[in-house]
């Protein structure tokens, strides 16, 4: 019974992620429009776009290889797997042991490498340019993210996300100053990883400044739909990760269906607030030159390392 409900919760969590992810993107776009005094697009716009893209036929470049066609499916699968691991509704996930935080970073890296290779496949200048920039961001964001996780792991003595969340949410309350550093680093990394404003502009179509959009320039139809969906999923996963690490309250411990009564509303509220804050950050900052990006991410990396140090200095050996 326990196991069956755990499986049910796992499936529920997956389905929820798939369904809610575009909504989160829509919500952020809406908040952004409000803050910038524009009339807001519909909350359901991302869904309509996905539906439209799935309907359209794929226009494939003459020399696109099998890798180019397979990559969207792989990227999508990576993000689905990631969303299955991050605890949102329950910490007792059957898929939880399959991958810990290090493997989670590995999943993001796998998706990144596939999208970069796909960008290089057709051999246009923009694709390679985007791939190169994406890898530039990736090689700094990845270790920074890993160090954020390490800080959490050092506190909870575990790299398993479930255990980390359980430690933070359900053990005796304690203030961890190191998490302040980790939080700053995580915010910076997630902005960069999700192609948000100081690093990349999700709505740009000016070729010279774009990163993510440049890589996927050759994609169309269902392939583009999968990539867009994967991008919204990635943002959802990052948001949930941030919530799980820094605001874990409300994620129930056991695999009981009745827990959903607490978990669902708290998740909705937290995501709503988080999305609004993201829109605020994006509105308040300007996009950086691409060569400021390593500096930005380098700072994030150092912040994450500092978080680890602060933990070792302040929170141990008492």
């Amino acid at each position: 019974m326990e196991f069956a409900s755990a499986i049910l919760l796992q499936v529920l969590e997956l389905v929820l992620a798939l369904l809610v992810a575009p909504l989160l993107t829509g919500w952020v776009n809406q908040c952004r429009a409000w803050l910038q005094n524009r009339s807001a697009p519909s909350l359901w716009l991302p869904y309509r776009q996905l539906a439209k893209l799935f309907e359209k036929e794929v226009v494939l470049a003459h020399n696109a290889s099998g890798l180019f066609r397979a990559a969207p499916y792989f990227i999508f699968a990576c993000m689905v797997l990631a969303s299955a691991i991050v605890p949102t509704l329950s910490t007792d996930l059957p898929f939880g042991p399959a991958a810990d935080v290090i493997a989670l970073v590995g999943i993001f890296a796998l998706a990144r490498i596939f999208i970069a290779l796909a960008g290089m496949d057709v051999g246009t200048s923009f694709g390679t340019l985007g791939a190169r920039r994406e890898m530039l961001i990736g090689f700094l964001a990845e270790p920074a993210l890993l160090m954020v996780f390490f800080t959490a792991s050092l506190i909870s003595h575990s790299t398993s996300l479930s255990t980390i969340v359980e430690t933070f949410a359900h053990r005796e309350f304690a203030i961890h100053p190191s998490l302040a550093f980790a939080g700053v680093a995580f915010t910076m990394v997630s902005l960069a990883e999700n192609a948000r404003v100081p690093i990349d502009n999700p709505t740009t179509h000016l070729e010279l400044t774009m990163i993510h959009e440049a890589m996927i320039l050759e994609y169309s139809g269902r392939h583009l739909a999968l990539i867009e969906w994967a991008a919204t999923l990635k943002m959802y996963v990052y948001s949930c990760l941030g919530l799980a690490l820094f605001f874990p309250w409300g994620i129930p411990q056991g695999a009981l269906l009745s827990n959903l009564l607490i978990a669902l509303p708290s998740l909705a509220v937290k995501l709503g607030v988080g999305g609004f804050l993201l829109a605020v950050i994006e509105t308040a900052s300007a996009k950086m030159r691409i060569f400021r990006a390593p500096e930005f991410l380098g700072t994030a990396f150092m912040m994450a390392v500092l978080g680890m140090l602060v933990h070792l200095l302040l929170e141990t050996g008492k």
Binding site: Y73, F74, A77, A98, D100, A103, S158, T159
Partner: peptide
């Protein structure tokens, strides 16, 4: 509790999602 990794499940999950999608 400390750390775990299941590569086979990992692979199967990716393959399953790719096939299903």
């Amino acid at each position: 509790d400390r750390a775990s990794y299941e590569p086979l499940v990992f692979l199967l999950m990716i393959v399953a999602v790719v096939a299903l999608t």
